[in-house]
Design a protein around this nucleic acid. Structure first.
Length: 491
RNA sequence: GUCCCCUUCGUCUAGAGGCCUAGGACACUGGGUUUUCAUCCCAGUAACAGGGGUUCGACUCCCCUAGGGGACGCCA
């Protein structure tokens, strides 16, 4: 059987390093085995999926050099590779499940489901569907659904016993069926959920090995149930560890820059990022730590994958980046730098700097904090704002929250978000600005704030605000609670 | 709360019962090379979560405890 692996990101938000991590391992395994690597877009959440996000994923993975053999943009024999274009297929398979009694119609209201969940939680049970609609007569249910009554389709789960799922890294995992929910397979809008789509697609696309995040272990019984219901062999599954924040929680943008683009913009070489990601949970047989993607492929072996959740350590990434950068031939270094500096992106700054310029030599000093890192901050840096550290922390904390939902990430939208924050905090916009200028530019005089934030992008902006908060002493647990409450009281 | 996963230096890891006086890397400290800085080189500090087994012998196998994480959505 030929090896086929896939990475299946959901096009929501900015491309995540976790996606790159999964893609890398799937890619390396497929390449090592002489197999094929497939990119599938899991866009069944129609409210959250977006085309720009999908393009950003293509772009980010291409930048890293993880090219796919089959995918939405390159085609392939098992397409389409966008789940939103495969509804026909899911509908057919859902029919099969309904006919075999492996799935059933459910007409329960969300209110009822909420109530059930609450009761179960109070009783100390695992919240799960109580099987209410399982008792319905299938023909009658089918008629109601056909008549247009709003419904979902759920997976029928054995009432008792234990499910044994195989994990290539951990061996057999036993999970009681009572822990497994009668998962919704088809939503009220007719779109499948992840669980249905992933099984149908992995099978139809002849995926032989699934390397995915550890967060999916508890869903495996559902998937196994579906494979059985269809009479299909299950691909071998390997649950890779989750990347972690320094406090060991799952890597999150609140505590760490998680966007692939963030690392690109900061000037890391893609080969350094891949090298670093490879070190998270995998090691070379000879323990060498600096290597290329080609060298990784040559030596890749699932037996050398470890299962401990690794903490993402920017310092080691920096060191590795330096190693790769310094190993470049001078000509290549120059070429790669030109590539990174990206004249088009720089050109967008011209309108901002031109009117503030008397000599070209002024330029570097104006855009330094945008093109490069801003100067490091200390608590003393904020003395100029004439506001105590706590007040600065609160402003930055609230700015972080206010900026979070801004979409698209553009000057006017950013301005508006901060202006409404000022109003809500009963401050003048100009009173709010000084700490923000310091956080973003590292000094109090700089190019216009919202243009700066727009140019930097979401991740870089968030990171600067966050590191500024740290420079101000950081937010204690107690303070976090206070800010949380203050924030809620604003609106 | 319930279930599942995990547990070697601060961090990433090597270690498949004796090769372990537990190795490497980042970070840190000290020293050297260098007109400065960085690089580079050398040295040092630093770990098998705890308790029971199994065994002639456990970092390695089993059990328990503790700690950490994840899942429990008409999100993926």
């Amino acid at each position: 059987m030929s090896v086929r692996t896939r990475v299946a990101p959901s096009p929501t938000g900015d491309p995540h390093v976790g996606t790159a991590y999964m893609a890398l391992f799937n890619y390396a395994f497929a390449r090592r085995q002489g197999g094929r690597f497939i990119l599938r877009i899991e866009d069944t959440d129609r409210a959250r999926s977006s085309a720009p996000s999908e393009s950003a994923i293509f772009e980010a993975l291409r930048w890293l050099g993880l090219d796919w053999d089959e995918g939405p943009d390159v085609g392939g024999a098992s397409g389409p590779y966008r789940q939103s274009e495969r509804r026909e297929t899911y509908t057919q398979h859902t029919q099969t499940l309904l006919e075999n009694g492996k799935a059933f119609h459910c007409f329960c209201s969300r209110e009822r489901l909420d109530a059930v969940r609450r009761d179960q939680q109070r009783a100390g049970e695992t919240p799960r569907y109580d099987g209410h609609c399982l008792a319905l007569d299938p023909n009658e249910a089918r008629a109601r659904a056909a008549a247009g009554e709003e419904h979902v389709i759920r997976l029928a789960v054995p009432p008792e016993g234990t499910c044994e799922v195989e994990d290539g890294l951990r061996g057999t995992i036993e999970i009681p069926w009572q822990q497994v929910d009668m998962q919704v397979l088809v939503k009220a809008d007719g779109f499948p959920t992840y669980h249905l789509a992933v099984v149908v697609d992995d099978h139809l696309m002849a995926i032989s090995h699934v390397l995915r995040g550890e967060e999916w272990i508890n869903s495996s019984p559902k998937h196994q149930l579906l494979y059985d219901a269809f009479g299909w062999d299950m691909p071998q599954h390997y649950h890779l560890p989750l990347l972690r924040n320094p406090d060991r929680s799952k890597l999150s943008k609140r505590k760490n820059p998680t966007g692939i683009d963030y690392y690109r913009r900061r000037g890391y070489l893609p080969e350094a990022v891949l090298n670093y990601l490879a070190l998270m949970g995998w090691s070379m047989p000879d323990e060498r730590e600096i290597f290329s993607l080609a060298e990784m492929i040559e030596n890749f072996d699932l037996g050398r994958v470890s299962v401990r959740g690794p903490v993402f350590d920017p310092e080691k990434l920096d060191w590795l980046s330096g190693q790769h950068l310094r190993a470049l031939k001078p000509d290549d270094f120059a070429a790669r730098f030109r590539d990174w500096a990206n004249p088009d992106r720089l050109a967008s700054l011209v309108p901002l700097v031109q009117e503030r310029t008397e000599r070209f030599s002024d330029l570097a000093g104006q855009v330094d904090y945008l093109v490069g890192d801003r100067d490091p901050l200390t608590e003393e840096s904020f003395a100029a704002t004439k506001r105590p550290p706590e007040e600065c922390r609160r402003i930055l904390d609230h700015a972080l929250r206010a900026l979070e939902p801004v979409e698209p990430w553009e000057r006017d939208a950013l301005h508006e978000a901060v202006a409404s924050l000022a109003t809500a905090m009963d401050l003048k916009l100009r009173d709010l600005m000084p700490p923000l200028f310091l956080a973003i530019a590292g000094r109090s005089r700089a190019l216009p704030l919202f243009d700066s934030m727009a140019w930097l992008g979401r991740d870089l902006t968030r990171d600067r605000l966050r590191t500024a908060v740290e420079a101000l002493g950081g937010i204690s647990k107690k303070e976090a609670k206070r800010f949380e409450r203050a924030w809620r009281d604003l609106w």
